[in-house]
Structure formats: structure tokens, C-alpha cells
């Protein structure tokens, strides 16, 4: 193994495990990812033949969501290596960014995923943002390195970049310039159907009481993120076991309600409205293929 293959503490190189099948709901996001990431990595020659230059860098943005899972699934569908990094780990050691992209080239075809990219490429006037900026922001030098690495990737490298952010209001627009991360996918908050689908899957093994209606639960969790829904069955089961001790037979509606009291929604109507506003007024050219 050569030196660049050592990911160290900055990023993970992993064999992707989940595919699109394992992600409930969000079919539109999955379709976009299929078009922008999976097909071009799978059939680069066909794209060349059709004279179609696939997007190289893609931003997923929207309210907090399991962006990393979307990236993992895309890599799995395409059958490529996933290099997954959290921006906050790349900030401290600048050379780790170069290291990440070198490794991606070495392992091509590959997909580079960076989450919370706004930490690595923040707007330089963060005080105008609506929410306070995250405590840790990259130095100008780190931002410059990131842009340089993205610029230097060529089509023949067969490396795609996927980044995610829930704070596009403080994201440096220079990252989204043509030739860098120039395509966007909006990942909306989980709709009722998505939440129902997620609940169906996470509760498939849980013995449910007769008074539990998944539709009702999906309605009550409008402001919960998908990852919060994943922790719901554990919490609810815990509540049931605490109450019924060894007589535990099933998880009833009241246990779910108690659990929901513990798991406070991560989203607020105000937040969702703001995301919606940003999406609506934006020019849509970057969302097209």
C-alpha cells in the first residue's frame, strides 16, 4: 500500500454497505443521484459517445438529514470506493485536503464525500448570516486548497465530488462556480410519505400495540429528521420496558408519545419555511442536469 492510501484520522475510506434500496422514501433525490453520480461513474464511455459531459461536483443541501447515507448509497450503486470526510476534521490540518483528493485519484473510480462543507468554505462575511456561524471555520488557506483541489480534478480522473450542507446561507458561492461544485440537489424535509415509509421499516421488527397507527406517528413527527426517526423505536421500546418490566409484550401508543417527548424535534416550522424560501427564489439552472 502506498502512503496516500493511509486515510489517518481525517477521512474514511470504506466499502459502501447500503444501497438506494435501503433508503426509505426520497425517490426524487435518489433519482437525481442516480443520474448525476451513479450512471456517469458506471458508464463513462457511453457519456463520451453521446457528447454529454456529466456534472463533476454536486452539492446536496436542505434541512439536516442523513446526507452521508445518500452518499454511501450512491457509491454502492455505482460500485466505486467512497472517501468520506467531515469538514470539521479537514479544517485543522490543511494538507489533509490534498491528501484526500490524492487518495481519491489513486483509488479511482471513486466518490469523495464531504459533509458540512460550509465549515471548509464559509462566506467571508459570516456576521450577516441568520443563525450564528458554527464555532469552527476554515482558514482562508484551507478554503483555497479545497478550491484548488477541486479545480485540478479532470474528467479522466473519474472522481466525483459530493458535498452536503444545511447552511447554504453561509456557504461561499465561489465553491459553486462553474467547473467546481456546479450542480445542486435540494433534499427537502422528509414528507409525510417518506416518514411513513421510514417508520414502516424501522418498526418492522418491533411488536406494536393495537392502538399504534403508523400514519398518526408519521403525522406527529413532521419536524423530526430521518435520523431521529431511527432512534424512535429504541426510545419507545425502552419506555415500554421500563413500564412493564418483564411483562413486556408490545410497544403501545403512549410509549411512543413519551418517547417523542424525549426526542425533541430538530426542525422548526420557521427553519423549514426559510429553506423553502431559499429554494423557491433561487435560479433553477443549477438543478437541471
Amino acid at each position: 500500500m502506498c502512503e496516500v492510501l493511509e486515510p489517518g484520522q481525517y477521512f474514511k475510506v470504506k466499502e459502501p454497505e447500503v444501497g438506494f434500496e435501503e433508503i426509505a422514501g426520497f425517490w426524487e433525490v435518489k433519482e437525481r443521484l442516480e443520474e448525476m453520480v451513479v450512471l456517469p461513474l458506471k458508464h463513462p464511455e457511453t457519456f463520451k459517445q453521446a457528447g454529454l459531459r456529466p456534472p463533476r461536483g454536486i452539492l446536496m443541501w436542505g434541512p439536516p438529514n442523513s446526507f452521508a447515507t445518500f452518499a454511501e448509497a450512491s457509491a454502492k450503486e455505482a460500485g466505486v470506493t467512497l472517501l468520506s470526510a467531515q469538514a470539521k476534521n479537514l479544517v485543522e490540518e490543511e494538507h489533509s485536503i490534498e491528501h484526500l483528493f490524492d487518495a481519491a485519484r489513486e483509488l479511482a473510480p471513486s466518490l469523495v464525500f464531504i459533509s458540512e462543507v460550509e465549515i471548509l468554505a464559509p462566506r467571508r462575511e459570516a456576521e450577516s448570516a441568520l443563525l450564528p456561524p458554527p464555532p469552527l471555520l476554515a482558514s482562508r488557506e484551507a478554503t483555497r486548497l479545497l478550491f484548488k483541489c477541486v479545480d485540478e480534478l479532470a474528467d479522466r480522473d473519474n472522481v466525483k465530488i459530493l458535498v452536503s450542507s444545511s447552511r447554504v446561507d453561509i456557504l461561499d458561492p465561489a465553491l459553486l462556480r462553474n467547473g467546481r461544485v456546479d450542480r445542486k440537489i435540494y433534499v427537502p424535509p422528509a414528507a409525510f410519505e417518506d416518514r411513513l415509509e421510514i417508520l414502516k421499516r424501522v418498526l418492522s421488527d418491533v411488536p406494536l400495540g393495537e392502538d399504534v397507527s403508523l400514519e398518526k406517528l408519521a403525522e406527529a413527527t413532521a419536524y423530526h429528521t430521518p435520523s431521529q426517526l431511527f432512534s424512535l423505536p429504541r426510545q419507545a421500546t425502552l419506555m415500554a420496558i421500563k413500564e412493564e418490566k418483564n411483562n413486556f409484550s408490545s410497544v403501545k401508543l403512549r410509549h411512543f408519545l413519551q418517547a417523542l417527548e424525549r426526542i425533541a424535534p430538530e426542525l422548526t416550522p420557521e427553519m423549514l419555511r426559510r429553506y423553502d424560501d431559499i429554494y423557491k427564489e433561487e435560479c433553477k439552472h443549477r438543478y437541471m442536469y
Binding site: L39, L52, H285
Partner: peptide
């Protein structure tokens, strides 16, 4: 830009369908 996206999307559909005799 819209027309470019339109052409790209149409090509993409053709690529997804593509069989032995090309796009």
C-alpha cells in the same frame, strides 16, 4: 441554459436506454 439542460437531459434518457447500437 434551459435548452442546454434540455438537450443534456434528453441525452441522459437516451443513455439510460442505450443498447448495442449506440445512443
Amino acid at each position: 441554459w434551459d435548452l442546454e439542460s434540455l438537450a443534456r437531459k434528453a441525452k441522459l434518457m437516451a443513455i439510460q436506454r442505450a443498447s448495442g447500437d449506440g445512443v
